[in-house]
Amino acid sequence: MMEIEQAVFARKRWLPERMADYGFRHAGQDFMLEKDFMDGDFRAVLTVSESGAVSSHVVDRMTGEEYDQLRRREANGAYVNMVREAYRNLLLEIAGACCMDVLFASDQANRLTDFMEDKFHVAPDYPFSKMARYRSYGTFRHGGNRKWFALVMNVKRGVVDKSASEDMVDIINLKIDPKEGERLFQMPGIYPAYHMNHRTWISVVLDETVSDEKVMALIETSFALTK
């Protein structure tokens, strides 16, 4: 089950001045908010780090303990689902008041999007938008032949690095010269392409492991190969 906070805030950027107006307070380098919901029966305690990462716990005010059923995959009773929905609505309210929308979850993906707009005069389209799981997948196409030269996806890290990690990361799929594959796969953060031909496409994890300059060079190569 994707964390509720991740689902709500994945493509948001926090605006500190709005956070202060809403009621967030400084806690060291972080921002913190305590807010009741469901007629005061529950309290949400949110912490937003300097980098924008959100952590939270929800307290049952009757017991004073964390309401851990909220995050249990097997907990699907009417009451826990009502609490989840109320909590999600609270997070949506906070996002609307304190955040701005961005196209992708990672800062690096958004910087590269700006690069592709400036260099190639293209913006992403979302061909899978009718499917909830894939609606944020953005394709970048040539203006003429409409072929993809880049595809940004938000996936579990484990699907590219073959680990057990379920952390969600942005990746970008790019076309390469097959002769370059062996060399590129030696570089941290570059893997055989997720859901595409492993000989001619790569996946680059957009978590700052590979520099913007290197990814931009790979984007330019992909653009040329798909032209």
Rank of each mutant, 00 (worst) to 15 (best):
N81E: 15
D39V: 04
L70V: 07
R135W: 00
R73C: 09
M32D: 04
G23V: 05
V59Y: 01
E17D: 13
L33C: 11
M116L: 09
G28A: 05
Y79A: 08
A27D: 13
A105R: 10
D41L: 12
E66Y: 00
Y87H: 14
G28L: 03
R43Y: 02
R84S: 09
Y22V: 00
E34P: 03
D39H: 13
Y126A: 07
C99S: 09
Q29S: 15
A86K: 11
M116W: 07
D101Q: 10
N110G: 06
E50R: 14
Y67F: 15
V80H: 05
S55H: 10
K119C: 12
N110R: 01
N81Y: 03
K35W: 01
A86L: 04
Q29E: 15
V83P: 07
M82V: 08
A105K: 06
Y67C: 09
M131T: 11
L70G: 09
M131L: 09
V83T: 09
E66N: 11
A86I: 03
N110F: 04
F24L: 00
Y134K: 06
A132M: 07
K130I: 04
M32Y: 02
A86N: 12
L90R: 02
V54I: 12
A78N: 12
L46M: 11
D101N: 11
Q29M: 07
P124H: 02
I94K: 01
M19I: 03
G23T: 05
D118V: 10
Q29V: 10
S56E: 10
P127Q: 05
A86P: 02
G52V: 04
S106A: 08
F128Q: 10
R84Q: 10
L103M: 13
L33P: 04
D101G: 05
G96H: 03
Y126F: 15
C99T: 13
M62L: 13
Q29Y: 08
Y79V: 14
G77W: 08
A97P: 00
G96M: 01
S136I: 01
E50G: 04
M19K: 00
R135S: 08
R61V: 10
D41G: 09
E66R: 11
G40S: 02
S51N: 11
S49I: 07
M19H: 02
E117Q: 14
M116V: 07
M32G: 08
L91D: 04
T47H: 06
Q29C: 06
R111L: 07
E17T: 08
L33S: 04
A109E: 04
A78R: 15
V83I: 15
L46D: 03
A27L: 11
A109L: 03
A132K: 13
T113H: 11
V83K: 05
C99V: 01
Q29I: 06
